[in-house]
Design a protein around this nucleic acid. Structure first.
Length: 427
RNA sequence: GCCCCGAUAGUGUAGCGGCCUAUCAUACAGGCCUGUCGAGCCUGUGACACGGGUUCAAAUCCCGUUCGGGGCGCCA
């Protein structure tokens, strides 16, 4: 039976164990060799001796990153630095790695990110990189657990769509037999249709596509969006769901993974709610008091976001954005120049955008006009508003950006397995 | 869409008109070595992105191409 390396420490000294994994490195001294072996849970030293190993000669030539299966005896009083090793009895070679490696897993030289991404399967063998995605997986599990407790239902809406843009982004065109179609920029319109369908509270975790030719460390052309929409709530309640979902999931992750995260240099602190809130208009004032010259209607530049990040240090909401800066479906506030909308920032990066949405059919029609959109393109959507649409609100949370910022990574591609950016389509 | 920067062995780099038959590290190959743990020691293989141009002379300067990194706008 296979034992994972992390579980070995719970076994008794002298136990027989079988471990399976990669040869991280070898140290060879003629009739004796040490193999540092790695699996997804950790690494351990395996000792092989010529006089007790029948395939020793083959093993002696094993290359780094080959895959082996080791049967041996656990020695917990080893004189190795870790104090623990496995005395090999039978070692089976399952797959021999070619040399040289295009990217060393434990090399003492760094590699360019481009080289790492070109050899991502090797790059991901590094425990500190695997950990990012173990963290992401647990985080998402926590969010799902929270949403489930709050009686949201998880849905899956189409990614190939006919509608033109919601505004703000260019879309990827795809051929759909004899028709033109697009890859969806967000599940927004379909979430709202489900609200009209009486689903009450929905959420979705899925890909979103943007054909924007950005070249930054915080943009992807395909990313994972955690989207939520709920009936009979307003923007304030949507913000509560958001901060509670995030704090629940993050604090849960810290409880589960704190030691391992620290071991690899990821420092996280527990999150407290509620998150601070600042209105768009107060934000403008604050920024103008700190050397910027912004007018109502200006977006916050990266420079502006850095100034706000210093003030708030962590998560904070920016609420009440001007109507001109928000998509057509955003509900206006009592002052029609403003909307019942919010962004959630984590330090200087936007991680969520949300709002109460328009549910009044006439108001929606007027907004199509104001935004210069052709309502015929949205017939499938608009129809859902004619026959009983409750007030509703929701948000979209960027998973990769959230993970990037929580773990203090310097590039959103670090928290993306196989990033799609302006030029990268493979692997 | 606009702007800036870069490309030298498998990987990461030094060199920035002649001292380059190109530096160093690491990896890789071979050898020595019975307890290594950044193993050590010896030997070896291995690179100037591509195409033009300037010059007596180009890795080095200029132009173009290709590929890459980053900033802005916009956004998750």
């Amino acid at each position: 039976m296979r034992t994972y390396i992390a579980d070995i420490k719970t076994l008794d000294d002298g136990s027989d164990v079988t471990i399976k994994g990669w040869v991280q490195e070898t140290r060879k001294i003629k009739n004796l060799m040490f193999i540092i072996m790695r699996d997804n849970t950790g690494s351990i030293q395996v000792t092989a001796k010529k006089d007790s190993m029948k395939n020793y000669d083959q093993l002696y030539d094993i290359t780094r990153e080959s895959v082996i299966s080791v049967y041996g005896t656990l020695n917990k009083k080893s004189i190795s630095k870790s104090g623990m090793e496995i005395q090999g009895i039978e070692i089976e070679i399952l797959s021999i790695a070619d040399t040289p490696l295009p990217l060393g897993v434990i090399d003492r030289v760094s590699a360019d990110f481009d080289t790492r991404l070109n050899n991502r399967f090797l790059d991901l063998r590094k425990p500190e990189h695997l950990l990012i995605f173990q963290f992401e997986s647990q985080l998402l599990f926590g969010i799902r657990e929270f949403m489930n407790k709050e009686n949201f239902i998880e849905v899956h809406t189409p990614k190939i769509v006919a509608a033109a843009t919601e505004g703000g982004a260019d879309l990827f065109r795809v051929e759909y037999f004899e028709k033109n179609a697009f890859l969806n920029q967000s599940p927004q319109l379909y979430k709202e249709i489900l609200i009209a369908s009486g689903f009450d509270k929905v959420f979705e975790v899925g890909p979103a596509f943007r054909a924007e030719k950005e070249n930054t460390v915080r943009h992807l052309n395909e990313f994972t969006s955690i989207d939520m929409e709920a009936a009979f709530i307003d923007d304030k309640k949507a913000m509560e769901y958001l901060e509670n979902a995030i704090s629940y999931a993050v604090n849960r992750n810290i409880d589960l993974m704190h030691t391992k995260l620290e071991e690899y240099g990821y420092h996280l602190e527990k999150i407290e709610t509620p998150f601070p809130r600042i209105s768009y208009e107060d934000g403008i004032k604050y920024l103008n008091d700190h050397g910027l010259k912004l007018n109502f209607g200006d977006d916050f530049s990266p420079e502006a976001n850095k100034i706000l990040a210093e003030k708030f240090n962590g998560f904070y909401f920016i609420t009440g954005w001007p109507s001109d800066m928000r998509p057509f479906y955003t509900h206006p506030d009592t002052n029609p120049a403003l909307t019942k909308s919010f962004d959630l920032q984590l330090n200087d990066i936007e991680v969520t955008s949300g709002a109460q949405r328009i549910h009044n059919y006439k108001m929606l029609e007027d907004n199509f006009m104001k935004k210069g959109l052709n309502k015929n393109d949205f017939e499938f959507y608009e129809k859902a508003f004619k026959f009983g649409m409750p007030p509703h609100a929701g948000w979209g949370l960027g998973l990769e950006r959230l993970v990037m910022n929580l773990l203090h990574l310097n590039n959103v591609r670090e928290s993306t397995l196989f990033p799609r950016d302006r030029t990268r389509l493979s692997p």
